[in-house]
Amino acid sequence: PQLADQKTLARQIYEAYLKNFNMNKAKARTILTGKTCTPPFVIHDMETLQLAEQTLVAKMVGSAGALKDREAEVRIFHCCQCTSVETVTELTEFAKSVPGFSSLDLNDQVTLLKYGVYEALFAMLASSMNKDGLLVAYGSGFITREFLKSLRRPFSDMMEPKFQFAMKFNGLELDDSDLSLFVAAIICCGDRPGLVNVAHIEGMQESIVQVLQLHLLANHPDDSFLFPKLLQKLADLRQLVTEHAQLVQEIKKTEDTSLHPLLQEIYRDMY
């Protein structure tokens, strides 16, 4: 009976993942490996960026083109924020579908999302990356790593650590069913600062982590160390988010850019 419960939990989490996220690894890999009819539009310099803005991401580049006269770095930063807000919204819906999450104390739900969404976002972002770049605009565009690196500082420091993480993370060759459980384990984490009902959340986390371990053994029988390797990735993601939050604070202080109110809430008093 316990095994049946664990399989049900794994299935529920995977279904919630497929339902709530617009992009997933299977879709991204199909595009990145050239198996689609129309390849993504490649953004590799200022000219191709402008072309992409006129077509692919017109909706994202500010209402009535409010940002059209701003420098490229600011426009790209704005697009990153829009994508982050969308993913946070998707992650919230996903979290609500994880069995037990919605019955938690509302303050604890807020805390789990505040601390978990960026770790989950960067784990999932790896699916849309290869060593040369990143899928954008729902997979209709591909922005090169070199172009992102060529932006002026501090904006050029934004994505490179995510690429470095993604290349190692993608080496683990997880599929969407593994990722769904990994993302659920990130969100339902018992050691976030300020949690009220720690024991309850630790219990939820234990169930999910146990299911993840069993699922990895069945889905990757040739890699018996995959589970401990993934646990290490949890620590790496925490570090990645800490550094990202510091960079965003620096950008907010030194650059004339706005930060979406939802992202402000998440970053405020984070670490």
């Binding site: 209402s63 704005h78 807000v85 919230t92 819906e93 807020v110 999302l113 979406h260 109110p261 809430e265």
Partner: peptide, 21 residues
């Protein structure tokens, strides 16, 4: 905590899409 995270709180309760940046 909910006071300081009004948008997250709103998302949790009704799933409204946040306003544009």
């Amino acid at each position: 905590l909910q006071e300081k995270h009004k948008i997250l709180h709103k998302l949790l309760q009704n799933g409204n899409t946040p306003d544009e940046v």
